[in-house]
Every structure is written in C-alpha cells, then in structure tokens.
C-alpha cells in the first residue's frame, strides 16, 4: 500500500472533507454536502465513516472500530485493517484507550471522554427521507425548520400502536434547531449522545457530513404524554451480569432457547476481567486458554 498517501485519501480530498467537518461542527445537526469519493470498499459499508476517519486520523491516534458494538465482526475488522495498512496507526479494542472510534450502529457503553472522537457510519443521513423522498423538499423543510411531517408521523404511530414505533435511528432535535438522524443506533443509545467526546457522522453514498460538538443538546423527539423511552431487553447479560448495557439476543439451541449478552464486546470482557460473571459466563482468560 506504499503507493497510497497517509490514510489513503489524497490531501486535496482530505482538505475538502476537513472543511466540511468544521462547518458541521459550527452548525450542529446540519448536513453539510461533500464530494464523497469512491472508496475501495462498497457504498453502504462505511465509506462515509472511512472518509471522515481518514481525514481526521493523525499518526499518534489509537483507532478502534466496532460494528454492532463488537470489534470482531467482519466489517469492523476489514475497516481496522484498512487503516492499519494505509495509516500505520495503532489500534485497540479498549474503548478508553482509543482516541478515534469508528462505529456502525452502536455507541460504546463506556462513557467517552474529552479528547476522544466518535465517527459514525451513516446510511441515510436525512431523518425526513422516509417521509419525503425528495432532497429538494427536505432541504426546504430544514431551512424553514418545518418539522410538522415528522411530528405527524410520530403521532400516527401513537394513534395506531399506542407508542412511537421507532426502535432505532430514532430522530433527535439538536440544540433546538435541526432534526437529525442519529444513524441506526438503537434508541437505547440516544441519551448517550450528550457526551464529552466529539461526534462526527459520515454518509458516503449520500454525500453528507454532520457533527455534534461535545456537550451539544440532543433531545429525542417525543410528546409530553408519550415521553421518549430508551428501553432495552429486561435481562442482565448472561456473560457479565451487566444490567445497564444493550443486549443481543442469541438463539442457543434447536428449541429456540435464548440468552442475552452485551452487544459491546469490550465492555463485556472488561467486566468479566474484573470479576463480574453472569450466569453463563467465565473470566475471559479461561475462555481463550
């Protein structure tokens, strides 16, 4: 890969992305158009996140990649290897060691700190897209702060189901101005978005970048009589016993027996390493022995 520039992208492209990132931080929640490049991985597989990471990485960074909360899913591994090769950066699976974390569909359970950067891969950045397919229309709605359509949709959910029937990519209002798509994270993660770290969102195919500076006000849309509910499966993790983490449901036999385990693999392993063991768990050293 020595023929390629540091972090793959040419400096011209990085400059364009960097300008978009700064505008995105200056206008939290606003989707900045950028001239997304064709990357050597398919659109829809994190090209937006990869371009944002490439424009943001420094040689001193420690890079972590998660997909569905896990460091060892195939797409996470593939992206981590890409930057190991092209930027020669250090990598880690430990949330607290990483300075840049690229994620698909989760926010780590461990609270992020100042100095950390969370890069989200975003498939459809426009929160209004499923209500109005036309970009020309949705752009006008954001300009006029006209979010009536979204409230009508949420209200119709309540009328039909008695609750807001959105479980992930649950829309948020940023700093009382822009309605924003938090990417397809479960709504359980929404409250974590008011955090100390910088959050950057990249949508490659849709050519949009947006951002949240630390401590930005992020409110999940709701109604007074139907407040936002960031619920999750009501079980402890079977491996580490955590009751505060988002859980994956795993089918363990032909009878359809289920168990619930942390989706954040680093969080789960760290807990077990410090002696928190669930009903089905062991300390991680023993697992790999």
């Amino acid at each position: 890969m020595s023929d390629y520039n540091f972090a793959y992208l040419d400096e011209q492209t990085k400059r364009m992305i960097r300008r978009a990132l700064l505008k995105a931080l200056a206008i939290p929640g606003y989707q900045v158009p950028f001239a997304s490049r064709e990357m050597p991985m398919p659109y829809g597989w994190g090209t937006g996140g990869v371009q944002v990471s490439a424009a943001t990485l420094t040689p001193e960074d420690t890079f972590k990649v998660i997909d569905q909360g896990a460091d060892d899913t195939t797409n996470a591994i593939s992206i981590r290897k890409f930057f190991e090769k092209t930027a020669n950066v250090g990598t880690s699976e430990k949330t607290e060691e990483a300075t840049i974390i690229q994620t698909r569909h989760r926010i780590p359970e461990t609270e992020l700190q100042e100095g950390q950067i969370l890069v989200y891969q975003v498939p459809i950045p426009e929160p209004l897209r499923f209500l109005e397919p036309r970009e020309t229309e949705t752009r006008r709605m954001h300009a006029l702060e006209d979010y009536g359509l979204m409230h009508v949709k949420l209200y119709e959910d309540i009328a039909r189901h008695g609750a807001i029937a959105t479980a992930y990519a649950y829309p948020v209002m940023v700093q009382d101005r822009y309605v924003m798509d938090p990417s397809p994270i479960p709504k359980f993660d929404n409250p974590k978005m008011e955090m100390a770290a910088i959050q950057l969102f990249g949508a490659g195919r849709e050519q949009r970048i947006y951002a949240l500076p630390p401590y930005t006000k992020v409110v999940s849309l709701d109604f007074e009589d139907h407040p936002f509910d960031p619920s999750k499966a009501e079980h402890p993790c079977a491996l580490c016993g955590a009751e505060d983490s988002y859980l994956d449901e795993v089918i363990t036999d032909d009878q359809g027996t289920r168990m619930y385990v942390c989706s954040d693999t680093d969080y789960c392993e760290s807990r077990r390493a410090t002696g928190h063991i669930g009903t089905e768990g062991t300390q991680p050293e023993e697992v790999f022995a």
Partner: peptide
C-alpha cells in the same frame, strides 16, 4: 511532512472549533 503535519494541524483546528 505534508500529510502528517496537515493531519495534526487539522486536529488542532477541529478541537478548537469543537471547544469554542
């Protein structure tokens, strides 16, 4: 070192914009 120095300088510019 254009690409690495630029990356470091951008981090400062971004941190500044993110921490007014």
């Amino acid at each position: 070192d254009v690409s690495r120095d630029s990356a470091r300088a951008f981090r400062s510019a971004m941190n500044a914009m993110a921490h007014p």
